[in-house]
């Protein structure tokens, strides 16, 4: 018992140190970029934060709820398209298609981003309501199929660029903030990510979170205890979709372009790789996973265009030898305690 306590205490100290160092790095990225005279670093770091956000959203249902959603790109993509479409109409001065009335869109972030979250949440509600009736491989396949459906749907709408996607001529507007400024944009992403991490860390420890984690461990038992598990899983799925939608809205601003490629299954796969690489069932893990994957992509892609050849074996090694991912490697034994 005593030994357990020591290991627990040490691990939690280690967790604190790792989190602190992580935060320090995150807040000083723009400074460091200036120092090394590499301003594009801030750009890459923003991208890492955005993908961290969507990876955290997937982890909420995958790592805590045991729902292997292979269609998370759909929610990311839809969030991005909401921003893209609203900006497109605002820029062209035309009315938004498929909507009643003559609304010409907007570039205001406080309207765009919540709308992105709402639409992705609604999509998650529909996809979740149908796919959560299945489990296991069927669930993976159905979420994948829905995302692919949406991918082909966006390709087939010429109004919004079809296969070519939409260029975004204006980034979202936030009062007193210039999102064209790389640092402002970076800190906007960082604050949203930290906010999301804080909310998620509360959620996974709440009554709702405990039910969700119980479902991953033993769904049959949870039902026998009297929990209508479907409802809980569906709500978690919708929450996850909404966060992914927000990430999509940020991503649209970051790349100043939205295309159906975001919804392609390879995109969904990449998000899942981030979660597994970083460590499922820990909220910090997906952030590490996003950083590791995107940096590897950046570095390896500089050497060879076949950089995936290196990624593959690395993933296999991580899955085989570090079951809690990079987070588990950093934190050690205490990583299970969530």
């Amino acid at each position: 018992m005593f030994l357990n306590k020591i290991i627990g205490a040490e691990a939690s100290l280690r967790t604190k140190i790792v989190s602190l160092v992580g935060l320090l790095i995150l807040f000083t990225v723009p400074l460091l970029a200036n120092l090394f005279d590499e301003p594009f670093l801030v750009d890459i770091a923003s991208r890492i934060l955005i993908y961290a956000l969507v990876a955290v959203s997937l982890d909420l249902i995958l790592g805590y709820g045991g729902m292997v959603s292979f269609g998370h790109g759909a929610f990311l993509g839809l969030g991005a398209y909401v921003v893209g479409i609203l900006t497109h109409h605002s820029y062209e001065g035309t009315a938004v298609a498929f909507l009643p009335g003559e609304w010409q869109g907007t570039t205001q972030a406080f309207i765009q981003w919540p709308l992105a979250m709402i639409f992705s949440g609604l999509l998650a509600l529909i996809i979740g309501a149908l796919s959560l009736r299945t489990t296991g491989v069927y669930f993976i396949m159905i979420t994948l199929a829905f995302a692919q459906m949406l991918y082909f749907f966006m390709i087939s709408i010429p109004t919004y660029g079809g296969e070519d996607g939409l260029n975004i001529w204006e980034r979202s507007e936030i009062p007193l903030l210039d999102l064209y400024d790389a640092k402002s944009f970076y800190f906007t992403c960082l604050i949203l990510l930290l906010l999301c991490l804080w909310c998620c860390s509360r959620i996974v420890k709440s009554r709702f979170g405990m039910v969700l984690r119980g479902c991953r461990q033993n769904e049959v038992r949870m039902k026998a205890l009297g929990y209508p598990v479907y409802r809980y899983k569906l709500i978690a799925f919708v929450l996850s979709g909404m966060i992914a939608g927000l990430a999509g809205a940020l991503l649209a601003n970051h790349t100043e372009f939205v295309g159906p490629g975001l919804m392609h299954w390879t995109g969904s796969g990449e998000i899942m790789i981030m979660v597994i690489l970083g460590g499922m069932g820990s909220l910090i893990g997906p952030v590490l996973g996003s950083a590791a994957l995107l940096m590897m992509e950046e570095v390896l892609a500089g050497w060879t265009e076949h950089w995936m050849i290196f990624l593959g074996p690395m993933l296999v090694l991580i899955v085989l030898f570090a079951r809690k991912g990079l987070y588990g490697l950093l934190i050690g034994k205490g990583a299970d305690n969530g």
């Binding site: 420890k205 709440s206 009554r207 709702f208 979170g209 405990m210 929990y227």
Partner: peptide, 11 residues
Amino acid sequence: SFRFWDNARKD
């Protein structure tokens, strides 16, 4: 159990 905020382990 749609309570999302308070820590269930401290309840």
